[in-house]
Amino acid sequence: MIYLDNVHKIFNQGKVNEFQAIKGVDLTLEGGKISVLKGPSGSGKTTLLTMIGGLSRPTSGRVRLQDRDLSSLPERFLTEIRRKTFGFVFQQFNLIKGLSVLDNVMVPALPTGRDHKEVRDQAAALLGRLKIAHKSGARVEWLSGGEAQRVAIARALVNDPEIVIADEPTANLDSALSEEFLEIIHGVKQEGRTVLMTSHDPVVCDAQVVDRVVSMRDGALVDGHQA
């Protein structure tokens, strides 16, 4: 479902501090499964994640979603596809301060032109499903770590994406909350969505719900070939 062909990523190309973050990765990820990119910090897993999710473009090589070539799309269309297809949960949650929980959840839907009331209702429903509806009017600064993450997940789901991407989701959580997170993710998978995560947390990598673990080191896959 997601195909990477010989993907390279170079930062500061042509300058003195040129840095190769991804060195020729080939990867195929199956739809409807939970996959984890595992590796130490600096291994390039976050960079790979951003390229898969359409947040940045590879310097060379191709990223394909089904039969659609993402890497050659200009930002305008990439963003449109990304909005519809991907939902992001960031490591730092990245909620907008000063806005309420409900407003935060609605943000990704605002440029889509969907009916405002419909979006509001859906956001409220998502918060209910994640058992955090009682906080929907609260300011995000007042939330605990676990609560903030649920809001982030709700936000990621507001545009009904096929693929949910989470970057180091348990980095700021204790074990109990991590387990809860995995349960939520399992629920997401059961809705038919694909989940892709990066982590170096054994709780995540060894979890039962995870279907596949891909190891990375120094910008390349550890196994070296299509896994």
Binding site: T79, L95, I96, V107, P111, R155
Partner: peptide
């Protein structure tokens, strides 16, 4: 810095430059 971060978040969750 806060405002820059906010714009970054907007773009990360699906807002386009023109938006």
């Amino acid at each position: 810095a806060e405002e820059k971060r906010e714009i970054g978040i907007l773009k990360a969750v699906g807002w386009e430059t023109s938006d």
